[in-house]
Amino acid sequence: MAYQFDWGLVVSGEYGVMLADGLVTTLKISALSIALSLTLGTIVCVMRLTKVKALEWLSASFTEFFRNTPLLVQIFFWYFGSAAVLPVSWNKWLYAQDFEFAAGVISLTVYTAAFIAEDLRSGIYAIPKTQLEASRACGLSFLQAMGYVILPQAFRIIIPPLISQFLNLIKNSSLVMTIGVMDLTYMARQIESQTFHGFEAFTAATLIYLSISLLVSGAIQIYNVRVLRLGR
């Protein structure tokens, strides 16, 4: 059986709209998860440096556990497994909301935060210790020293790895389709099963992901050259 290509299918009409809707969901879930994972990752990293044993231990187990288990399993756990862990009243409220989306955001946030915390920690280690000591000597508290002196410098150092974590997050967001979030991959799969034109649908979805990645890395390149005056 020869395969009949029908490219019109994915750029217009019902299926074009489906892909566009999927793209919007992908962008929404990615943007929200990026913001939250950056916050959570910073908190976890700072906990590691507090010199309070319990917090250090908590932070270390958090990063080790979530970095070393597959995202897909984490997604299933948050979506199907959380019912047994959380109180009933919380669940009721959660399920009335868009729980699929929320579970997707939680999984992506927690997973990526573990990586960001590690990147940030190596960024902080690259800053001489005397900086923290000097800021403490000036009368700043630990958190003030972190917030005003150490973190701003560390973030500047880790911008490249941070961006690649964000790009990974956008790509990883394709996994949330397994719990029924209607993102770009979900829609491509839907079109495949409704029309059997998987080739066109997956090509379109791949090109969209690729454009997002290339746009972001292109923008970083320009930022590096123009603003930081790095490179050639």
Partner: peptide, 19 residues
């Protein structure tokens, strides 16, 4: 390198499996 790194693994799997 650029194409693969810009594409989610799930898409790569679909490519080889369905396409």
């Amino acid at each position: 390198i650029e194409i693969i790194r810009g594409t989610p693994l799930l898409m790569v799997i679909f490519w080889f499996y369905f396409l």
